[in-house]
Design a protein around this nucleic acid. Structure first.
Lengths: 255, 255
DNA sequence: ACGGGGAAAGTTGTCTGACAAATACTACGA
DNA sequence: TCGTAGTATTTGTCAGACAACTTTCCCCGT
């Protein structure tokens, strides 16, 4: 009975994860086109240099992500591309969404500052109230036109010795900076959204009339150990994007 | 090389699916509380009467759904319940969402009719233009107050000999009727949404002023074989719900 | 020539047993 | 008291085999 407290951290990468990434890449690059059948499990396992059990672990994951479909006795097929570019449930960050829509992502009016966390923020990020947080506020543009106002909040201690990275966050994707420069990978997040009208402050920053339609998104992102990393508030121009969600069924079929 | 055309249908249920359902039930019923560690794989496999390989298939699925977390060398833990009740990505249907919010779901102004499919509908549902579809239009209420206007469209052939089921759909959840009475289980769907203002028609039906904030949702639902079943248009009152999405990370970590 | 039935091949699902790798607990020593 | 090495536990991976299911294709009867 080795364990008691909360588990801590995973370090090395199971081989099945590498296999999963390799297959995801092949699908994304079109090497494996939608609808085609994958090689049989024994053949694919040999090709990838892993056992069939390991390959099946990877395939089961891909099936859960909706990238492939497995048919007993028939084969494993690449699902018909249902990965909508701006899909809310798989895409993180505004930068990626804008790029995926084929537009050029930019930032204007970027600024940041440090301040003590409010009670609400402290609760979301699991901090003591009053501990310092970094606030990054940006207006994001698509092909030069303002489309999103975002305010990202993360505990200042993550930047302990790298205060200069706050500058980077104004220019690059925050998720990119977190992962490349700080080694923090966002694993999942919970987003809540609601239609709102632009108030006078938001309207001025996005250069739109007051009362314009927006989608407000509140979001908290976590790393793989379920530790809260970033809290975000975003206001998206309703006309700029179509938001898409891939919904999975209740999966509560009869046995 | 046995296969060529599109795969058709799976009939019998792999045992790993039954195992998954059993574990999901235990978690939902609280037999396995959040944060607790599951028995070891060999122990659990023995208890459930399957091999360890089959159990691992089920566990991998549950991990993909975010219900458990596996830690190499440590154990498998029940994830801390992040299944938000009104979550857009796991909950289907307005009825369930209203009930999950603790309110009483009702229907007023329900009506239905048959008509030839429009070109757009035919495309979504994979029909020939002009084939008949059933249109079910309802105003859904939460605790008596109108909150959602919905229009569901499905091919008339599904009701071939059960035209009386259209009546049922006015009263009960459409997903319930599909599954219980027609044996059609919705497996997944793709929803697109956007903030809109209520036009005069919608405003009258929902008993709200013109211009009120709504969230418009267009959705197509598929069965497990990727066959389009229902196309829905819904207008949700912005004040009535908070919409939540569980976002999964890009999972594109370095290898 | 055509259509139907059944055997055969191919593929995924499951089982068994074993070992490797990582983690958690424990006992020992400084 | 603290750190360290060792040991037990647990998940990850491997190999081979058979079962269940699907698809193909050939043979046979009409």
């Amino acid at each position: 009975m080795p364990s008691r407290g909360r588990p801590v951290k995973a370090r090395t990468r199971p081989r099945s994860v590498s296999v999963r990434n390799e297959l995801t890449d092949r699908i994304d690059r079109g090497v494996l086109a939608a609808g085609t059948r994958l090689p049989s499990e024994p053949a694919l396992a040999t090709e990838l240099g892993v056992s069939r059990a390991t390959l099946r672990e990877a395939l089961r994951t891909l099936e859960g992500e909706g990238l492939v479909r497995r048919m007993w006795g028939s084969g494993t097929y690449v699902a018909h591309g249902r990965r909508v570019a701006t899909s809310l449930d798989v895409n993180f960050g505004v930068t990626e969404a804008i790029r995926a829509a084929g537009m050029e992502a930019g930032t204007v009016q970027g600024r940041y500052w440090f301040e003590p966390a409010s009670a609400a923020e402290a609760g979301q990020l699991n901090l003591e109230p009053g501990q310092d947080v970094l606030v990054v506020e940006r207006v994001r543009t698509a092909d030069g036109k303002p489309v999103v106002l975002s305010r990202d909040i993360l505990p200042a201690r993550f930047l302990a010795d790298h205060a200069e990275l706050a500058d980077q966050m104004l220019r690059r994707s925050m998720y990119e900076v977190l992962e490349r420069d700080l080694g923090i990978a966002i694993h999942h997040g919970v987003a809540t959204f609601r239609p709102v009208r632009a108030d006078v402050t938001v309207a001025r920053q996005l250069e739109i009339p007051r009362g314009e339609l927006l989608l407000a998104i509140w979001q908290v992102d976590y790393d793989e150990n379920d530790v809260a990393i970033v809290s975000s508030h975003e206001y998206h121009l309703a006309d700029a994007f179509d938001f898409t969600v891939h919904r999975r069924g209740p999966g509560r079929r009869v046995q």
